[in-house]
């Protein structure tokens, strides 16, 4: 099972992204890096100038680079951006919206987690239409992941599962970051840049519950499947995805790489991750078919 680094969900400044990917290129033990703006089309221009150099930098470090399309495609600029990416044959692309599938016209591509490939029938259809790789929706439980992984092997399609980072829970046409600041999406002034790990929402009883990232709603706690990694690999899942958060991601990649290679047990890995992600909570409920926020100690999943 290979580690991948998913796209940055947040509006980090271009310099920060550039430095981030330089560090990933030099130090992070991941095989594939997904780039591109998936959440908000207004943010995309900020990093466009840096993109070619970043792709080059990552490739020189031996990483496979994949460009991602937007999850939501509605406005003319979003349609154009999607069609533009779909026209590329190099680097690879990950498609997150059916608009991208139309534009891709059957040429090879990857399927992103926002495209809703939940089952073997949909995977078979997509594979016939050129999909070479499928990232499953984060909310899928282990039994379904196992069957999807088997289907992936039968179809010759890579299967990827998110094992780290906030769960993407919803997208909207409305920008909740702008709304929280009394603005509209068209007049947002990029207020989301102030929250590199999302804007926390807390219940009126003081319990942290969700994070707002522009039009996206995420979980408060980070998904963390360190304990389950051997079981996930045994299912035949080919790739494990880490989503960038506002922590030392090189260190996070290191913990997961050590765990995948069997160099450390789950408990040690979790201890190291807790240090790297000081103050963050962890969850694995989705994988166990439970409420996503829960953290379940599953004896059967250790190994």
């Amino acid at each position: 099972m290979e580690l991948t680094l998913g796209p940055i969900a947040y509006h980090w400044p271009a310099e920060r992204k550039r430095d981030f990917y330089a560090a990933i290129a030099d130090e992070a033990p991941v095989g594939t890096v997904y780039l591109g703006e998936v959440i908000c089309s207004k943010r995309a221009p900020f990093f466009e100038r840096e993109l070619p150099a970043t792709i080059d930098r990552l490739r020189r470090a031996g990483k496979r680079v994949v460009l991602c399309t937007l999850a939501e495609v509605m406005l003319p600029r979003e349609r154009q951006a999607t069609a533009g990416l779909a026209a590329l044959d190099d680097p690879e692309i990950e498609i997150n919206n059916a608009a991208g599938l139309l534009a891709r016209e059957g040429r090879p591509h990857r399927i992103g987690p926002f495209l809703n490939a939940y089952n073997e029938a949909t995977m078979a259809w997509l594979a016939e239409q050129g999909a070479t790789h499928v990232c499953l929706p984060t909310e899928m439980p282990s039994e379904a992941i196992a069957i999807a992984a088997q289907a992936g092997r039968d179809l010759g399609v890579g299967v990827e599962v998110q094992v780290f980072g906030r769960a993407p829970l919803a997208v909207s046409a409305r920008c909740y970051h702008a709304r929280a600041h009394g603005r509209t999406k068209d007049n947002c002034q990029f207020i989301c840049e102030a929250d590199p790990d999302g804007m926390p929402l807390t219940t009126r009883d003081g319990q942290p519950i969700l994070r707002v990232n522009g039009i996206q709603t995420q979980s408060e706690s980070y998904v963390e499947l360190l304990q389950e990694l051997p079981a996930i690999a045994a299912m035949g899942v080919s790739h494990a995805r880490l989503l960038p958060q506002d922590v030392d991601m090189v260190a996070v990649c290191g913990v997961f790489a050590d765990r995948i290679a069997g160099r450390i047990e789950a408990a040690e890995a979790q201890g190291r991750l807790a240090e790297v992600c000081s103050g963050r909570g962890f969850s694995n409920g989705f994988f166990h078919g439970a409420a996503g926020y829960r953290r379940i100690q599953a004896a059967a999943a250790t190994g």
Binding site: A71, F114, N116, P137, T138, E139, A167, P168, L169, A170, V171, L210, T217, S219, G285, F286, A291, G292, Y293
Partner: peptide
């Protein structure tokens, strides 16, 4: 595209 209910 909403998993809010499943999360809770």
């Amino acid at each position: 595209r909403c998993s809010l209910t499943n999360w809770l």
